[in-house]
Amino acid sequence: MAIKPIDHAAELSKAGAGVESRLGKAWFLAKSYPLGAVGLFLFLGLLFTGIFADVLAPMDPVKTNADTSLQGPGGQHMLGADMMGRDLLSRIIHGARISLAVGLGSTILGCSFGVIIGLASGYLLGWFDLITQRIIDIMQALPLLVMALVMAASLGPSLENTVIAISIPLVPHVARVIRSNTLSLREMPFVEAAKAIGMSETRIAVKHVLPNTLAPLIVLATAQLGAAILTEASLSFLGLGIPEPHPSWGRMLSESAAEYVRTAPWLVIFPGIAISLAVFGANLLGDAVRDILDPRQRS
């Protein structure tokens, strides 16, 4: 068997040598993680649509019109109109804002509380840790959607309550990861060094341990984003999430969706595509972020 000579130049460029400019680095990352690049593209699309919904939407998403009730796609309404004659395209564009608000809002809220609890639990140990661990066990035994359902129902339907309802099941998840990270970090020599020069425990926890949990936190947060968007859609679909007249994608599919399957399929197809693309993008992005930041878990 002939030995293949090593092409040094090709190997080097494959490993990313000589990539200097910022744009070059971005292009290199995109080439290394093509699926992640697609995810980032979809996520930025969602972000753009959500922020500029007012400019992008051709019509008022909540303005009803009896004349165009259940009008099919084409003509005046590009994607058709719903039961109340509202323009579906405009509603989907504005729905991006709701999805984004709930997705990002609940992820950020859930992660913040999760980090505080996880850090305190892993750093203080003792009875505090014991009790939080038990509570986390209990909360994790309930499926995310069941937990969110009970929370949403007891808080009542509104945008803020939906964010809270979805963020709470995320808390134990984040807290557990941050705690186990904190446990291993507190044994590190740099923590010992900080102690040796007389730094206070709180300062060590915040200044030295916390920044080191950032990578797993980002991995977790991006992974949870898709789940949060999906849970919002499910809650709204079941009528326990975002109330009318807010154009939530899940809500658009709710109630009479089984009826629309026969009479107005566009009302089922387009909002579903919007949800799927948003969640798909978030999941792709989450996978790539995990591969980049946490090589041990690389798939």
Binding site: L35, G226, L253, V268, I275, V279, N283
Partner: peptide
């Protein structure tokens, strides 16, 4: 990944 991204109620409706 698309299996994890499609809402199950939408899949059911499809």
């Amino acid at each position: 990944l698309s299996g994890l991204s499609l809402p199950s109620f939408w899949l059911a409706l499809l």
